[in-house]
Design a protein around this nucleic acid. Structure first.
Lengths: 238, 238
DNA sequence: GTCTATAAGCAGATAGAC
DNA sequence: GTCTATCTGCTTATAGAC
């Protein structure tokens, strides 16, 4: 009944939303309580797993440490997630959902200044709100992205290709400088994710205050300005 | 006699250059041969260690795997490097030396177009030539930079602070847009290192040809152009 | 300087009582 | 659904013959 835990992240995406309500048809209150215990423990374990995978990578993370952080015996972790890999896949799934939500902001407007600016802000906000998730993603890619080929090829690549066409259209319309679209997208990803992934370096070099709420917002606007300048974006004439 | 292997990376920097010639005063040829065997084995082990640390992070890497890649018994690895941590520190040391060499290009000219453009090219070239090293560095920072505090605080921070002053001077002279200097430096690091660290993602999204020599050179010039535009750099009037 | 054998401990995963 | 005890194998590091 927990087959979904052993499938790849991409296969998992389709099934997961229905999983947490599968017992609700039952008449007694026991299944509902069980289901909510399950949901709450799974969520908690996923959050702790995200932190440990971020700090130590997949191979370096131990299920014992994840369970300890969650305040549960290691055997409970294996009750909810049969293998370390299944747990890891669930973490990657959740991260892609957030990535996907931010990606939507790219289509908020036909004005490249609004679209690109909004996307950069969304990615910066994601770095601020969920830096551990960004680190897990980065670790996975650095290690060769072996567990993410499905997500990259079936989800990220199609998104990128259609955004490349949109950028090329903007260039044709004279709303963007003649940039290589992929280079622009990579620059946006690299720069915004840097504030999550390289947090420790920024803290060491620029001091703790560099990551305070007010300072982070100012940095976000700096990044937006620089990316817009780099891309040569201008708003269409009204 | 191998005390240097157990010190921190920063302490190591000062001693290492003299270490490999310490037996040369000896009259017999034996010490020289021994020294060169040592040098060659150490170099080989360091290269293999860099690859394994890049793929799996510090905690995930095993000395057994490093030794196997080097074609040596594990005990030999421990003969040259007493602990896994000592080996890791030596790898980080070597990486910082390369980082430092690239950093020098920033001072090649008083013209911000030449200085910034040259630095971006040097960092891109480093990403192309030694992607594994960049990945080890990234892994270390993502994991909290616990083993790099010395290098960051004593070496990188002073360099950054003096470059920040240089950038502020350029802004005062009207040769750069009024950017936040640190944000510009972080954007340069993030964007250039992305081509090493996120190699697997680029390959999956843009295809293998994206990293061919000709294509990489074209991308480098794209990145240079975009960074220069982002910073609003212009050459001083002659 | 090389390498087999092994110590001491931690990893992922499971059995089975409660 | 929880948790102790345990299996099996891999981890870092060392001993000691050659």
């Amino acid at each position: 009944m927990r087959d979904d835990d052993t499938k790849t992240p991409a296969a998992n995406l389709a099934m997961r939303t229905t999983a947490s309500v599968r017992d609700d048809a039952d008449a007694t209150h026991k299944p509902r309580r069980k289901a909510s215990i399950r949901a709450s423990n799974e969520t908690h374990l996923l959050a702790c797993a995200e932190a440990v995978f971020a700090e130590r990578g997949f191979e370096g993370a131990s299920t014992a440490l994840i369970a300890e952080r969650a305040g549960l015996p290691k055997a409970n972790l294996h009750y909810y997630f049969p293998t370390k890999l299944a747990l890891y896949w669930r973490v990657l799934d959740d991260l892609f959902e957030e990535w996907n939500a931010a990606a939507d902001t790219f289509d908020a407007s036909d004005d490249p200044v609004v679209a690109i600016g909004g996307y950069v802000r969304a990615k910066m906000e994601l770095s601020r709100r969920r830096p551990l998730g960004s680190k897990v993603w980065a670790n996975e890619i650095i290690s060769g992205a072996t567990h993410m080929q499905d997500i990259l090829l079936k989800r990220v690549k199609p998104w990128m290709e259609s955004r490349v066409q949109l950028i090329e259209r903007w260039i044709d319309e004279g709303l963007l400088a003649p940039v290589e679209p992929k280079t622009l997208l990579f620059m946006i990803w690299a720069t915004t994710q840097h504030y999550a992934d390289f947090e420790a370096q920024i803290r060491a070099l620029a001091g703790k205050r560099a990551l305070s709420a007010a300072s982070f917002e100012a940095t976000t606007e700096e990044v937006v300005k620089m990316i817009l300048r780099a891309s040569g974006a201008r708003s269409p004439d009204a």
